[in-house]
Design a protein around this nucleic acid. Structure first.
Lengths: 346, 346
DNA sequence: CTGAAAGCGCTTACAG
DNA sequence: CTGAAAGCGCTTACAG
């Protein structure tokens, strides 16, 4: 009964076998290394009895594998992140991988730091929802793509694809969903559909706006830049948004929006609240948006239910495929959103 | 220009100093070890120039410190977890600690496994929202408290405190909030307030039910066990709940509930939906519950806004205090909830 | 105050 | 097929 902790060394000495034998057996290479089965059994039995597992750090120091995957989100934000985590968690549990979570708080510099930390601590792979810069405000941080090409890290990019990204990715059908939902507004008679979005360098938002423009064009409506509100900062106080809305609502009736398309759920919520305040009682014009919380009442409302959970799941599956040595060309999954009518008083 | 990666050894040789000097300087012990400041500067300068950081695994193998904190939640559940993470994330960013996240999927055995994994991989501390067994169905897993006392791991327990836990904890004022919100129902004239809860071994739920009973007693009302619905499993199909509700609603009018108290937000949502279906159109009896999503409409509704984000923040602060060597007696923080009226048609 | 040396616990050629 | 040995990259007594 030594008081010292169990190590491969002590275990080998106990059993009178070599340390390498223990190492090989515990790593499942007994057959490959032609360890006599009887010896292998004794080692396994003893290890189980002592509840012994090889020291993680010593192992990692040699193999450079950790069984951990980095998860980087732009924000620890309610629905999006936890829905994705749900999907990711399932897959991780099956692969007993561990999640190292970090949020970049919508800051590219923070994102770069987080990533460096994760890489330094050793992750086998990375799932990242990149955060985007506001247009015209490029960050000073090292470009995302550059940051991991040096370390040969399997990466799955989710939701937003930076320019020039060649690897795996999972996105939703931003363009198609936007186009579809805006078409519905048009079909309901809307002729002057306004759009509210962030002026971010994010492929997802670009696609949504493109879908909006396309839907209008297809209906023979001239897209009107004056109806597009692009917010240039996060502006939680909503004052930028409020100003923009006021100025739109101040137009003569025939220039005022008769429908709204909003590119994100959070923004839709705020827009909705402001419109309610600014335009007083009575039903609001019809609205379509990304997102699907059912907090809206009182007018025609379309939502794009976003497949966040599935995106997480697919991203994780894709990553583990790579980690298990799956080579092959980059995969770019596009998951379908579900367009739905939530409230119709029409 | 060697092609080999930089190590302390190579760095020391380049500079013609000893490896220990490099180690000491890079660990901020230059002064303590009386390294000549000029030497220290050279080392620091070179390290910065090469962007060198000591290998994480080698370091951890020696020091047994990782700068990682384990986070164990019962479920990757929408509001609760992401709100807590928000609070935790802030504090972690300040302390540049890394989060290792795992969810036990409401399963004690899974929780035990997750915990073992995390401990094996090396965490400096742990923040855990324990998952509870259903009453009468004790799990076969090793009791939570036992599992980390062997490894001398700083732990902060959140939301539910297992019996016999002596360490730090952060909870909300379950008893007081329940009592207050049920008192309001009574003040509004409710005389037969039913209660819906899970039959879990969770201190938080116990306190909420106790608050309910106390509020009734204080108002001179006899708590009636027949009005208390205790669900014995998660039962996402809600069939247990539906049966219980049906049987209550089938009573003669003077035995039927005229108010509801529900111990969790999710349960409230389901109860609400079922009541609406089972009792047809018309306003429902007043309801009070933990949670504060504003998806309820059409009758008197009290909510207990839960301070989840603050709970996360405080838990993280408490943990880092311990990690920085803060000794002293266990702290048990009780955070105040905010009782609010959400909809009043009364 | 310094530097050579042992040690952390494992992996993996390599010579037998 | 085995076992002694070097190596992973760092930390830290310990003798000078």
């Amino acid at each position: 009964m030594s008081v010292r902790k169990t190590t491969m060394k002590s275990l080998a000495e106990d059993l009178g076998v070599s340390r390498s034998a223990v190492s090989f057996v515990l790593n499942g290479e007994a057959a490959k290394r032609r360890i006599p089965p009887e010896t292998a059994q004794r080692i396994l039995a003893r290890a189980k009895e002592l509840n012994f597992r090889p020291d993680f750090f010593a192992q990692a120091l040699n193999t450079r594998k950790t069984g951990a995957v980095g998860l980087v989100f732009p924000d620890v934000h309610e629905a999006f992140m936890s829905e994705m985590l749900r999907g990711i968690d399932q897959v991780f549990a099956r692969n007993d991988a561990v999640m190292m979570l970090s949020s970049s708080r919508l800051d590219r510099n923070q994102e770069a730091r987080n990533l460096e930390t994760l890489i330094h601590r050793g992750i086998d792979g990375l799932i990242i929802v990149p955060c985007a810069d506001f247009r015209g405000h490029p960050s000073t941080a090292i470009p995302l793509t550059q940051q991991f090409e040096a370390v040969n890290l399997p990466v799955v990019m989710v939701d937003r694809i930076p320019d020039g990204w060649q690897g795996d990715s999972v996105v939703q059908d931003d363009f198609a969903a936007a186009r579809q939902v805006v078409s519905r507004l048009v079909a309901k008679g809307c002729r002057r559909v306004a759009c509210v979005t962030f002026d971010l360098c994010a492929s997802s938002l670009d696609s949504r706006v493109a879908g909006y423009v396309t839907a209008l064009s297809e209906a023979g409506l001239e897209p009107d830049q004056r109806l597009v509100i692009r917010l240039h900062r996060v502006d939680s106080g909503s004052s930028d948004l409020e100003l923009a809305l006021r100025s739109l609502l101040a137009q003569p009736t025939d220039r005022r929006p008769d429908g709204w398309f909003i590119t994100t759920a959070g923004l839709a919520l705020r827009t909705r609240e402001l419109l309610q305040i600014l335009s007083g009682p009575g039903p609001l014009p019809a609205m379509a948006r990304f997102g699907s919380d059912s907090r809206y009442q009182g007018s025609l409302m379309y939502g794009v239910a976003q497949p966040h959970q599935l995106m997480g799941q697919r991203a994780a599956e894709l990553l583990f495929q790579r980690l298990e040595g799956g080579a092959g060309p980059a995969e770019n999954l596009v998951l379908l959103s579900h367009v739905q009518t939530e409230v119709s008083f029409a």
